[in-house]
């Protein structure tokens, strides 16, 4: 399960090997299935000898369960391998309540208020960040489930701001370096 309070979750196996591919797949599926914004869509790293990225869809509200059951049927019909339950409890959230409101630069207080993110931690320092610390979202905010909480890891950035740890455009492996 991803959120401990999730009422219903499904895990979807894929051939995606990168997060970028998996994100696109997830966002495409969400649009195609018309999923509401209170559904959590996560990526999960699968390391069972064939490294790849799997997906999960989960909903807290009972009302969303029928939507996910429909999604499950349609995904299965499209040839995806779908199971009950997320692959693990450490999903990286791509879709979550409030994600579309996390744009531009926000204070941490605003970020927490607008979205389902529970907490922000800053790498490289043991201190808790101040609520008025500014985070440059880069429109790419991917919190992670940790012990039932949705936590965003951030890094110090230029000008005393923070950025989410995950770079939206990382250097591709081995391309020119």
């Amino acid at each position: 399960m991803t959120p401990l309070s999730a009422h219903y979750a499904i895990g979807i196996d894929t051939d995606a090997t990168t997060l970028r591919e998996a994100d696109r797949l997830l966002q495409g599926l969400a649009a195609e299935l018309g999923l509401p914004e209170d559904v959590f869509g996560c990526t999960h790293l699968v390391r069972d000898g064939r490294p790849r990225v799997a997906l999960s869809l989960a909903a807290e509200a009972v009302a969303a369960e029928p939507v996910l059951r429909t999604a499950r049927d349609r995904l299965t019909a499209q040839g995806y391998e779908v199971r009950d339950g997320a692959p693990d409890e450490a999903g990286r959230a791509v879709l979550y309540p409030g994600v579309s409101a996390l744009t531009g630069t926000l204070t941490l207080a605003e970020l927490l208020a607008r979205s389902a993110i529970d907490r922000v931690t800053v790498l490289g320092t043991p201190d808790e960040p101040a609520p008025d610390a500014r985070l440059v979202t880069r429109e790419h905010v991917r919190p992670q489930w940790r012990n039932g909480h949705l936590v965003l890891a951030a890094m110090p950035a230029a000008g005393g701001t923070l950025v989410p740890f995950e770079d939206p455009d990382p250097t591709p492996c081995c391309a020119d370096h």
Partner: peptide, 24 residues
């Protein structure tokens, strides 16, 4: 960009035990 071009994050081929700090 990142010093050393260390701008990655955990992926399917990465060792699961490494903390996020290790990628910088």
């Amino acid at each position: 960009r990142a010093r050393g071009i260390y701008d990655g994050s955990p992926g399917a081929n990465s060792f699961p035990g490494y903390p996020l700090e290790s990628y910088r």
